[in-house]
């Protein structure tokens, strides 16, 4: 038996979406400008994008680049962050470097990277990799640093070598924090994916969006924004499911349940 309160809580995200669409519809009818289609017009344009084979190939290419960039970042950033967290020398070497790179919008590097590597997949994947790496490094660093010394001592007394302690104590102990970084990274990957395609206009979801903008197909523009948003929500919810199952043992984190899971 579901109580009305629980039902309300469960359906809150859905209600928020419907509310947003209604507000959009009303605002667009009131403003009545060509560049701001109504919500219904935008929704009607969604099937024509998703039904078009070329669009699907484009979106698929975007997702592929995002997945590769994110995976590379995870493989590179987690070990680096953990090493920084545990070894002072590594932290003092990389910290200033990262501090310099952190505030630079990674998409701003895109034109230079395009000069070197062209407008193809390599450039875009590299920008996604750069954008995603920093939060994952940072959270892995914090997580690694926070591992209780006594936990490592307990492991050392059992006979774990320092490499074993890194893999079998530091990594699992820091996992909740690492995954928080990965979640931020996932959202950033999506953002950098679109911006990279906005600059290197060759293929992808961002390309569909900006081509439509050039041709004043505003319903397609807004439909594409909705598709990217929905993709973000889906990926985030899927990731939260994964994260929940990986760190069930950890203390519940009181973050905003920004997901539909």
């Amino acid at each position: 038996m579901i109580t009305p309160r629980a039902l309300l809580q469960k359906s809150a995200p859905l209600l928020a979406c419907i509310g947003l669409l209604c507000a959009w519809q009303v605002a667009s009818l009131l403003l009545n400008t060509e560049s701001f289609p109504t919500a219904l017009e935008a929704i009607r344009a969604v099937p024509s994008i998703l039904g078009d084979k070329e669009s699907l190939v484009n979106i698929g290419a975007s997702i592929r680049r995002m997945a590769i960039g994110l995976s590379l970042a995870v493989v590179f950033a987690i070990p680096l962050g953990l090493l920084m967290g545990r070894i002072k020398g590594v932290a003092s070497f990389f910290n200033p470097l990262l501090m310099v790179i952190y505030p630079v919008p990674k998409a701003a590097l895109m034109p230079i990277i395009m000069l070197w590597l062209g407008v193809g997949d390599v450039s875009k994947t590299l920008v996604i990799f750069l954008g995603v790496s920093l939060p994952i490094i940072y959270h892995s660093f914090q997580g690694g640093k926070a591992v209780e010394e006594k936990m490592l001592w307990s492991g050392a007394a059992m006979g774990l070598s320092s490499a074993q302690r890194m893999f079998r104590i530091v990594l699992p102990a820091a996992l909740p924090e690492i995954l928080t970084g990965c979640r931020t990274g996932l959202v950033l990957a999506l953002i950098t994916m679109v911006t990279s395609e906005m600059i290197a206009r060759q293929s992808g979801a961002g390309n569909i969006l900006f081509n439509a903008l050039d041709m004043a197909q505003y319903d397609t523009v807004f439909a594409m924004i909705m598709i990217i948003g929905a993709l973000g929500i889906f990926l985030d919810a899927a990731f939260e499911k994964l994260r929940g199952s990986l760190v069930r043992w950890s203390k519940p984190q009181h973050d905003i349940p920004l997901s539909f899971s």
């Binding site: 209780e148 006594k150 936990m151 001592w153 307990s154 007394a157 102990a173 760190v247 950890s250």
Partner: peptide, 11 residues
């Protein structure tokens, strides 16, 4: 060792 902080492996 047995520590005041327990230092159990939470995972």
């Amino acid at each position: 060792p047995v520590f005041q902080e327990f230092a159990l492996f939470p995972w």
